[in-house]
């Protein structure tokens, strides 16, 4: 596993020229405001933390008044909630799901299991730190956090989005080699996903110096082109 710790690395922000026109950034600010006020969440209920989400959504705490509502597919969602321990088999699905979401996308790790493995620290089959495999915007610690804590965390994320600071989804494109390396360490060198992250990074000009590296070379050597599934009745 690569030893570099990415948790403190800042995302490469392209220098934005300061413009004198006060209305120049109005549109961008409007979009980030709307992003912060409308969040569709995909709750990937991996563990026990999922039990705290229904009370947060329904009449007692009502997330919809903050503009947060559940969605059912990754394509529609903005936030991926990982609610509990992530076993290695689950992690594959989490990564597939994460890669299918449209950017800007945010990941929230709920419960202490996503922070450091929690009570599954000694388990051989559990991924300990979620942000070694996908960039995480926010952790809500606790075993399990109460709905108040979940909503408090979501409000912190809203504040970050409003000021355009929640950019960790760019990290996945800019440091893809690091994340892919950690994924290959767990799943073996044959690991590949249907989403072409390198191609997306090139298309949307999110490439960084660390997008390509030794691990993406391994990926290129084993990558098979996607084939349509065989039709069976």
């Amino acid at each position: 596993m690569s030893n570099t710790d990415l948790s403190n690395i800042e995302v490469n922000q392209k220098p934005v020229a300061k413009r004198s026109n006060p209305f120049a950034n109005v549109f961008n600010e409007l979009v980030s405001f709307c992003r912060s006020r409308s969040m569709f969440m995909l709750h990937y209920c991996t563990g026990c933390g999922a039990i705290e989400l229904p009370p947060a959504m329904t009449s007692r705490f009502d997330m919809e008044r903050l503009g947060i509502q559940p969605m059912v597919t990754p394509r529609q969602a903005d936030i991926l909630l990982i609610t509990g321990y992530v076993s290695i088999k689950t992690l594959k699905r989490v990564i597939l799901t994460y890669e299918q979401m449209g950017a800007p996308k945010y990941v929230i790790g709920i419960c202490s299991c996503t922070v450091n493995g929690g009570m599954y620290w000694q388990s051989y089959a559990t991924a300990k730190k979620l942000d070694e495999y996908i960039p995480v915007d926010l952790y809500i610690a606790g075993c399990m956090p109460r709905p108040e804590a979940v909503i408090e965390g979501l409000q912190q994320l809203m504040a970050k989005i409003k000021t355009d600071e929640a950019n960790s989804w760019k990290k996945y494109y800019e440091h893809y080699d690091y994340y892919l390396g950690n994924q290959q360490h767990l799943f073996g060198n044959n690991w590949q996903t249907p989403t072409d992250i390198i191609g997306e990074a090139k298309t949307y000009q999110l490439e960084g110096p660390n997008t390509l590296g030794e691990h993406t070379k391994i990926l290129e050597s084993v990558q098979r082109p996607l084939e349509p599934l065989e039709m069976k009745l």
Binding site: C34, R37, R65, P104
Partner: peptide, 26 residues
């Protein structure tokens, strides 16, 4: 009907602006 507060006044507009403002479109 579900005894909730419900979304704020401009929520439908926020949703639409946010969706059109997504940076990667599939």
């Amino acid at each position: 009907l579900q005894r909730r507060v419900g979304p704020p006044l401009f929520q439908p507009l926020f949703d639409i602006v946010k969706l059109y403002g997504k940076q990667t479109q599939i």
